[in-house]
Design a protein around this nucleic acid. Structure first.
Lengths: 120, 120
DNA sequence: TTAGGTACTATGCAATACAAAGTACCTAAT
DNA sequence: ATTAGGTACTTTGTATTGCATAGTACCTAA
């Protein structure tokens, strides 16, 4: 079984959160976002990001404005809307809850350990 | 936009990890697993779990043995195979990496400058 | 023998990451 | 002016996976 596939599956649903996180304090356009995600070891490609941005825009979580570029066509700079900030705060909570659930499972797993007390 | 949907998406891909985590030191059958996941605030239903168990079995990560029950039909008790343990350890690492990536995004959100990409 | 509960299975749908091909715009070289 | 190359964005199709729902098989008890 392929671990990289599992990692990819783990990232699913996290990407939306991560993109919003990136935009929390600073507007950015697509290539910025990709570069910053990559800097955090989260590989995301255009084909994933653009539809996501479009969807978040359509849902009122993001807005954008065109900005000229000195090298190439103008860029869509995305930023959070007020609704987007609220939503992001809820995702923050969801993320913490998920983390604590996993943590709890890791600990519970040991509590239920009668013989295998060797937690390597 | 619906936060519960986003949470559901976050859980996707995590459930496999959580189930394996549950079975790390102790065999269990379906209803056990569901109850323990629920105890960690991870709601999983039969329609999700059974196909997952079947898939993990088929991939050689899990094995099971029938055990009689005093009340009702016999149960499939699932346990990790050696391969499953190895795989779980890799998922552990993937989980930690993902967590650190998100953490990094939360921290660097304020002081990251996109100009660093000019290094290329 | 029948009724009800428990354990497991099978089928179809919705959401999403991803690959790949395509469109539009800008700058620079000829 | 025209063409070539790069950047930014869009569109379409596919695979995976969680979930809802309906269905099957087995056990116990009346």
């Amino acid at each position: 079984m392929d671990v990289s596939n599992a990692k990819s599956q783990m990232r699913k649903g996290m990407i939306e959160y991560c993109v919003l996180l990136l935009l929390r304090h600073r507007a950015a356009y697509a290539n910025d976002i990709i570069a910053r995600l990559k800097a955090s070891d989260l590989i995301v490609v255009e084909g994933t990001l653009y539809p996501l941005l479009t969807r978040l825009k359509k849902d009122g979580l993001l807005q954008y404005e065109w900005q000229e570029s000195t090298q190439g066509p103008p860029r869509k700079y995305y930023a959070l809307t007020a609704e987007g900030e609220t939503y992001l705060n809820e995702l923050d909570r969801a993320w913490l809850e998920l983390g604590s659930s996993v943590q709890q499972l890791r600990l519970t797993a040991e509590n239920f350990t009668p013989q295998t007390t060797t937690a390597q």
